[in-house]
């Protein structure tokens, strides 16, 4: 670019070689331009932000935190359910154990009762058998005694006859009975 046109174009803030004279920041010729475009840019950014970007991002963030909250609540619920299920399982286990114990005790009691009945029955039978046997023994003993008396009478009579005497049956019986008693 030619020196003359440059100087004519950009005015007092630039020297003939196209370098800045002083600080470009302080060149009053350029300030309105910067301010104008700054205001335009800021307004544009503000509208883009407040109309489109910020509501959208805000909604996304809200939705995300909502989703996270819901998920955490669901997880909490599932945890509670799991705890409940565990408690129910424990209770069922306990009940089953108690039931089993009860059944065992019942069975034991039943068997005991049956056993008692059988024992009694057996005892009674044994007692009856004993009594019967005793009666039989007594009978045998009685009949033996009578036989002994009869044999003694006969023997006594024969003895008396053998000795040469005679004795009537009455006397012999009395003597034998007296002897038996003695």
């Amino acid at each position: 670019m030619a020196t003359e046109t440059t100087e004519a174009a950009v005015g007092a803030c630039v020297d003939a070689g196209g370098s800045a004279l002083g600080m470009p920041q302080l060149c009053a010729d350029w300030m309105p331009n910067q301010i104008f475009w700054l205001v335009i840019t800021l307004i544009a950014i503000y509208f883009v932000m407040s109309r489109i970007a910020l509501p959208r991002i805000g909604a996304v963030l809200a939705e995300r935190s909502g989703t996270i909250t819901n998920d955490i609540a669901a997880a909490e619920e599932l945890k509670t359910k799991a705890a409940e299920a565990e408690a129910a399982y424990d209770k069922a286990l306990l009940d089953a154990r108690a039931e089993a114990n009860k059944i065992v005790a019942e069975a034991k009691a039943e068997i005991q009762a049956e056993l008692d009945v059988e024992l009694q029955k057996a005892d009674a039978e044994i007692a009856a058998k004993t009594a019967e046997s005793e009666a039989a023994i007594a009978e045998i003993r009685d009949s033996a005694k009578q036989n002994v008396v009869a044999v003694a009478k006969d023997t006594a009579k024969e003895l008396v006859a053998a000795m040469g005497g005679s004795a009537d049956a009455k006397t012999i019986t009395a003597a034998v009975n007296a002897r038996m008693k003695g």
């Binding site: 800045a20 470009p24 920041q25 350029w30 104008f36």
Partner: peptide
């Protein structure tokens, strides 16, 4: 020329920098 980088230049042509002229400031803000 450490401060030459701050010179405001019109984007099109070499005309004077009026308040509405699109310049390198405009370009970089855009």
């Amino acid at each position: 020329h450490p401060l030459d980088q701050f010179i405001v230049k019109p984007l099109f042509g070499d005309g004077p920098v009026a308040w509405y002229t699109p310049t390198n400031v405009t370009l970089w803000m855009g």
